[in-house]
Nucleic acid binder design. Structure first.
Lengths: 239, 239
DNA sequence: ATTTTCCGTTGATCCAAGTCAAGTATCCCA
DNA sequence: TGGGATACTTGACTTGGATCAACGGAAAAT
């Protein structure tokens, strides 16, 4: 059960380099970051960081998946899911402020930990890295705004319809595809209860959505699109 | 009715310098920014920028107030209210991406417009400015996350209770204070209808909240706080 | 002063979504 | 292979919040 801690093997460097944040930076700044970094393997369902605690490391998810959740007054909600390869809790690292979300592994995950102070030091040194951080943060900001609009402007059924279309696209665009995670978490991400998600799926049956376990088939693409009314200013998470 | 456009008078420099974003940067970078900048006076209820359009200027609100709203499928919601002196739509400027929100003056407002390309140019040149942008963006990001948690984890009455406590604090902490804007917009900010806001206020009467027009009096501070269960990870917008 | 307009409140009703409870399916593991 | 979790679904019910319509009051306009 106990995670194994080791210094970063150089074989991981290329993977990390692929992340936007580190792609363009100078080689020696990159190595300065990597020197202080660790890699750890975590089992599923481990709480990596806890809401409210101070942030000491920038995390880079190499393999596996991580759920970012927040809670208040006994309620809990899933804010986002992190997939490889990408960083998380960059904003807390930068501001040296407490985490606003807890992070929990969903499956066995391999995660690189870069000391926050190193990130800040290299930031001051390397223009290109600074620029990348700004771009990344602006991107994160815009993503949350989109998700906020989704929440405030749409009903749960509309959110699900748009989610399915986005997921379909990510899966390659075919009529049939699989959900990327279990329904209870999908419900939480979409801001509803599992029971309601079931009913929302059923409600979308009228627009040609067929569900079999985690397998989704969109039988009438146009009909669903007409219902969903996707909008790049909400649903396109690449800009 | 027509806004008057003029190059930035130097008398405005000190005001803008006060904004975190510009406070620490080198004098000549600051002046490089100001040289290309304009100041305009706008009447109330003018749409300054429109959701979906490309972003050409970073805006700095000098006096007045601006509402940031988003809409979809005929519905509209208020995402935030900007108060002087602060910038808005920084993320769109940085990413050179379309606005995700429209901006509309609420009252007569004086606004500085800094060409986005100048911001990006000075950014590359001035470490300190780059650092300030990162800090600002991280702050914005964390603000939206907090607001997202507020929305997903609380009922409308709980959101109102916490809003009142925040507003009370901002107004100096006395038991009596004024709402900073009209109720219909407050409703939209809190993600509910005006009718429901009325009822939420009435519901908070049981916890010692008295309402007279825009004047709020918190008669039993402890009782309201017990109900609101404020949490710095949601309600403290300074970290 | 009187009309107009707009904001806020209230009541009645409706709809979406959460809750509770039970039942089914599936997967894991002994 | 047979429990025993656990996830998912379904139904009945409750609740929160939206909608619609009407009304009161204050400010602006005539």
């Amino acid at each position: 059960m106990c995670p194994v801690r080791l210094t970063m093997p150089e074989s991981d460097y290329p993977d990390i380099r692929e992340v936007h944040l580190f792609a363009e930076m100078a080689e020696d700044s990159f190595e300065a970051l990597m020197r202080g970094a660790y890699v750890q393997n975590f089992p599923p369902q481990i709480e990596l960081i806890t809401e409210g605690e101070p942030s000491d490391f920038l995390h880079v998810l190499l393999t596996g998946s991580v759920d970012l959740v927040s809670s208040w007054n006994g309620r809990e909600t899933s804010m986002a899911t992190v997939r490889p390869i990408s960083t998380f809790i960059l904003a807390a690292t930068i501001r040296d402020a407490p985490y606003l979300m807890s992070a929990r592994t969903l499956e066995k995950s391999r995660i690189a930990l870069i000391p926050s102070q190193d990130v800040r030091a290299v930031f001051a040194d390397d223009h290109v890295f600074a620029r990348a951080i700004v771009t990344e943060l602006a991107q994160c900001y815009r993503s949350v705004i989109k998700s906020q609009k989704d929440l405030k402007l749409r009903t749960s059924r509309e959110r699900l319809a748009n989610y399915l279309l986005r997921q379909q696209r990510r899966a390659g665009g075919a009529a049939g595809f699989d959900l990327e995670f279990e329904k209870r978490r999908l419900a939480s991400v979409l801001g509803m209860t599992p029971e309601n998600l079931s009913r929302a799926f059923k409600g979308l049956g009228a627009y040609g959505v067929a569900v079999d376990g985690t397998r989704i088939t969109i039988e009438d693409q146009q009909d669903l699109e007409r219902f969903a009314k996707s909008d790049p200013l909400i649903d396109d998470h690449t800009t």
